[in-house]
Design a protein around this nucleic acid. Structure first.
Length: 283
DNA sequence: ATGGGGGCCTGCCGGC
DNA sequence: TGCCGGCAGGCCCCCA
């Protein structure tokens, strides 16, 4: 699931239970996710105090007082679970481990944070904090869509002369970092632009409309995530899997929501991935 | 240089 | 009930 808004919601949810807290113990239950964990990850996390949590694109960055940063990506199915524990739980090992609980952090505030990822497309790495931006996976990321540098001129420049479809370009993390399959579909639906359009064929005027729509769609989703984020004690503590209602994604064969449009949502494949759009109002 | 497809994994759902 | 194909919100990597 996790695109930028979901990752931001997870970061927000983790902040109060991790920031300024010491990791008493880290448990690593397998050698890898998508890639091997860094050497001695458990030992390097143990005893570290979390200084702050940041987000870059779909990555969560946990800065530690050891001058290392824990880099986390949730992949397709990664989740963070927050749960209470009794003092000493981590020594007694008496809590129930669910399938795919790959990494467990026992925090000094008697809270346990569990990284669960069925498909294991996620990743974790430990890198020196000053060099985290140079990490192979972060180095080539494009602009944050909610940052100040992302503007009409930037997008025009990024699209000019491009032969690939506007959908694939908006999905390209080297250009805009954080949009995924769902929100690209949503953005293009709002902008009334066909996902099949060659990027270079869009007028400047139409390109310009995309920028505020990206901002709006993402910030609304973050707001929705934030408001669905209850106190972890009241729910199951699962972060990263709240359900939104989407305007076009997943609505194949249903009527288009656009005002005065009587179109029916269609689903096609682009670069092997599903695209949902309205052939009537998206041109 | 860039675009497209394969592959990584497991789970779930619908059809037969 | 069981099996099978298709699908899933990510992204690296290889090939043309």
């Amino acid at each position: 699931m996790p695109e930028l808004p979901e990752v931001e919601t997870v970061r927000t949810g983790l902040e109060p239970v991790m920031q300024n807290k010491v990791i008493l113990k880290a448990e690593v239950n397998r050698p890898d996710l998508r890639w091997p964990f860094p050497p001695n990850m458990a030992q390097r996390l143990t005893g570290a105090c979390v200084v702050r949590l940041r987000r870059r694109a779909k990555y969560i960055l946990v800065d530690l007082d050891t001058d290392e940063t824990l880099l986390i990506h949730l992949g397709m199915s990664g989740r963070m679970l927050i749960s209470d524990m009794q003092v000493g739980d981590f020594q007694l090992k008496n809590f129930v481990k669910e399938k795919h609980d790959h990494v467990v952090l026992y925090m000094a505030n008697n809270i346990r944070i569990t990284f669960n990822d069925a498909r294991r497309f996620g990743m974790m790495d430990l890198v020196p904090t000053p060099r985290v931006d140079k990490h192979k996976l972060l180095a080539s990321l494009g602009l944050e869509p909610l940052g100040n540098s992302f503007n009409e001129t930037y997008l025009q420049l990024a699209l000019v002369g491009k032969k690939s479809s506007i959908k694939n370009v908006l999905l390209d993390q080297r250009i805009i970092a954080g949009l995924g399959n769902i929100y690209v579909c949503e953005v293009l639906h709002h902008a009334h632009i066909s996902p099949k359009r060659r990027s270079g064929s869009l007028s400047k005027k139409r390109v310009n409309t995309i920028v505020p729509i990206v901002r709006e769609v993402l910030s609304n989703a973050i707001l929705a995530g934030g408001s669905s984020l209850k106190d972890y004690r009241q729910v199951d503590g699962e972060l990263g899997y709240f359900q939104h209602s989407f305007g076009v994604y997943g609505r194949e064969s249903l009527p288009c929501y656009t005002d005065n449009c009587d179109g029916i949502i269609k689903r096609i494949q682009q670069s092997g991935r599903s695209t949902f759009y309205c052939p009537t109002c998206q041109t």
